[in-house]
Design a protein around this nucleic acid. Structure first.
Lengths: 208, 208
DNA sequence: ATATAGTTTAACCATCTGGTTAATTGATGC
DNA sequence: GCATCAATTAACCAGATGGTTAAACTATAT
């Protein structure tokens, strides 16, 4: 009948990667089946091994790329010449936009690292391109000292912003069941989310 | 050599349940192995089926109980006769305490609902014991109208508090790699977490 | 045309895994 | 002692799953 996926325009390797991303993101390493990925990509299962040797190798390719993606937006914002307030609001905007396109990404990363913490050593994030927290922390403390924002510990401030932004997406299924709302109501809620978080952070950081 | 687990004092069914919780929480439904659970409980694998019929049944037992646990603390706080500020701070305190004891619980619930959203219908949360949001929302709006707290939409306010509290625990492995800190530093950070979130929320809710 | 190299497929294999079963052990009442 | 019933175990089974392989197909160059 209908094709499992309309991606004939891409070459085989790309189609496998796209299919693998879909399946791994949704099912995780343990739950993903090579046959499912092959079906989704519309190719023979043996081709997965031809291009990527093993399930583990294919998974690592997907995972590493996903993790890098996550890191990149983070680092880009930190490096930019903005005020703290602007950076925080940029975080909120960027992460919420990204998650609208790719809601599974953060949860995927979190669960997979959680299951095999020993498998993801420093090697995954080479020393030279690690997030430079020191500069960001210094900037926050400077603005606090200048009285431009209320005093909060830098790491907690960042975690607050990330938590409010990311959690509302990854916990969507749980919250829908916990709060007893339906999909549509929750989507409406997510649409307001960015503005609401920004307002909340502004209020918290206001100097009295 | 040594026993896989020192729980000889419990009866077989309890030992299986405790072992299943450990394995399911960490590995998820797809990643968990019946043999692992049996080993962890120190019993023969056939006993798992003798007591719980199938992996699915055993999983459902664990999952339902975990989900109820999560709901109970939520509902208890909502029902209590506290002000909004007190309730929010109670949320923060209760969830952070619970997660110190059981860090895998929220992530477990989130990922499993995510993987099979169709399997968890309303039946899991019987109508009569669903979280009563209406009263809570009304209380929030009342306190806003009385000028006791700054105006934020109730559901966003709650999500903010839950996000800041829960996310810092479930994202621990990701944040450790993202921020390039070590386990010990992160544990120290988590110890300060409750006080920091409370301070942040208070500041945000202050009426100017 | 044909040789060559890369690509794709069907069939197959070994292992893992959830689940079953028949036999054994243990306790309890008579 | 022995009958009865629940609890426990070792051995086994069928299907699923990651992975392999030899053959077939395709395109490109000569």
């Amino acid at each position: 009948m209908d094709k499992p996926n309309s991606q004939e325009q891409f070459d085989t390797e790309t189609r496998i990667l796209r299919a693998a991303r879909q399946v791994f993101f949704k099912q995780g390493m343990a739950g993903a089946r090579m046959q499912d990925i092959a079906d989704q990509a519309g190719v023979n299962k043996a081709l997965l091994h031809y291009y990527f040797r093993s399930k583990d190798k294919l998974f690592q390719t997907i995972f590493t790329q996903a993790f890098q993606t996550m890191l990149e937006s983070f680092k880009a914002i930190i490096a930019s010449p903005m005020s703290i307030t602007e950076k925080l609001e940029s975080f909120i905007h960027v992460y919420i936009s990204n998650m609208r396109l790719n809601p599974y990404l953060p949860l995927f990363i979190i669960t997979e690292i959680n299951k095999r913490p020993e498998v993801f050593p420093r090697q995954l994030v080479p020393e030279h391109q690690q997030v430079d927290l020191k500069k960001l922390f210094a900037q926050i403390q400077k603005e606090i000292a200048e009285g431009r924002i209320a005093p909060f510990q830098p790491m907690h401030l960042i975690m607050n912003v990330l938590g409010m932004s990311i959690f509302s997406f990854i916990a969507k299924p749980m919250m829908i069941h916990m709060l007893g709302v339906n999909e549509k109501q929750y989507e409406h809620f997510l649409n307001e989310r960015e503005a609401q978080i920004i307002a909340f952070v502004r209020s918290a950081l206001k100097t009295s």
